[in-house]
Design a protein around this nucleic acid. Sequence first.
DNA 1: CGCCCAATTGAGGATGTTCAAACGGGGTGG
DNA 2: CCACCCCGTTTGAACATCCTCAATTGGGCG
Lengths: 222, 222
Amino acid sequence: LRTSDPPEQILLNERQRLQLAQIAMRVRLPPRTVIYRESSTAHSVFAVADGVVKCFRELRSGKRVVGAFLFANDIFGLAENGRYTNCAQAITSVTLYRLPLPQLTVLLKHDGDMQFQFLAKVTHELRQAQRRTVVISRRDAVGRLAMFIGLMSERAAGELDDRSVVPLPMTRSDIGDYLGLSLESVSRAATALEKRGTIRFEGRHTARILDPAGFARLVAAV
Amino acid sequence: LRTSDPPEQILLNERQRLQLAQIAMRVRLPPRTVIYRESSTAHSVFAVADGVVKCFRELRSGKRVVGAFLFANDIFGLAENGRYTNCAQAITSVTLYRLPLPQLTVLLKHDGDMQFQFLAKVTHELRQAQRRTVVISRRDAVGRLAMFIGLMSERAAGELDDRSVVPLPMTRSDIGDYLGLSLESVSRAATALEKRGTIRFEGRHTARILDPAGFARLVAAV
DNA sequence: CGCCCAATTGAGGATGTTCAAACGGGGTGG
DNA sequence: CCACCCCGTTTGAACATCCTCAATTGGGCG
């Protein structure tokens, strides 16, 4: 199966959009809202219309593992045996489409094309997860952070005119939980990148790539 | 969407099996056979009938990242923009079903139920990838190896009568590439587990859990 | 029987983590 | 309008762990 290119774009016709709209509920949530908890019974799948969501698991040690950050047009909330396998929380204020499972299931089974788009979406999520494991395979914190910023840059490419500006809506702690680093290491890696003159942080949630060539070298040094 | 339980089992009726069989090619491959390479054009999706396959990526540094080990009833070979995103190689001698993409696509779009099963499979792969990231989030090599053996034990639960025996068909190097550890660290972790009396290795490719309670504690200490 | 590759074991060096303290900015309340 | 407070962030130092390099052992297969 090949994902649609660009994979973020849902390609549905008018009838399909209408059918989806009929079962979808649009919800607006403020930052930090917990959308669902791990192990709770899964009633819906979600699609991000706007804003940023994180999916994570709480470990008994108190450590948290962020599995993914989700942006506009991403889907999340896939369950296993009727229960969510992780926790989802809004990072910014978000707008979501809530798709009740029973109705979505019927719709998908009935409409092969729509389900195919859905399949492409899930495949995309799988791809993202694999990309993350490549990032984590790096030993050095600076390299990991650079690759992370690279991922975020790629993602934001479509919606910003200035490619050198990279929005980082999440906290250092979230980044650490995603990269498998302590938040201190993330912070140190960030200052290291600044001291090299590779990037500059403008506020906590924006990075500017000052030396694209050096940055690319760093990212590619896997 | 909920995965079928058990998620490994494809639930198809007779007609669907026949349709799949019509487009599938059964192939037997000896160990170490490269099934496809990264970036090569994707013509087929594969399903494992028997044996073990690894999916991995080669990094420029020479390091390898194993993204997944695949066993009977697993699928692999999902492409992105028509190209494989990783390399697949047989670990043992394997039997595969090769499903040519054009025909599979038509079949899936046409048969909503079958596609739904396929979707469940992909979701399962996604789940596995997420499970792996939790394993890697652990700092200590011994804990990572223990969790890995736990994963392999779970997987083998259905096909072996003795739950304490865990087959590990892959090499230490493969395990290291999966766990983000050097093969030396894997080896040291293995001997550490033996010295604790938690497990014992019988040959290179079999582990026996001697102290299930202690083992479970170790695995749960995440 | 001997070769070859996988696995083991050891020592030293590099990197991240932890614990602890100080800083900074944004928002709230006086 | 300003001061204060809170929380995310930064920085430092000691410690733990894994990695790298290197030599050795062991098992399987020809």
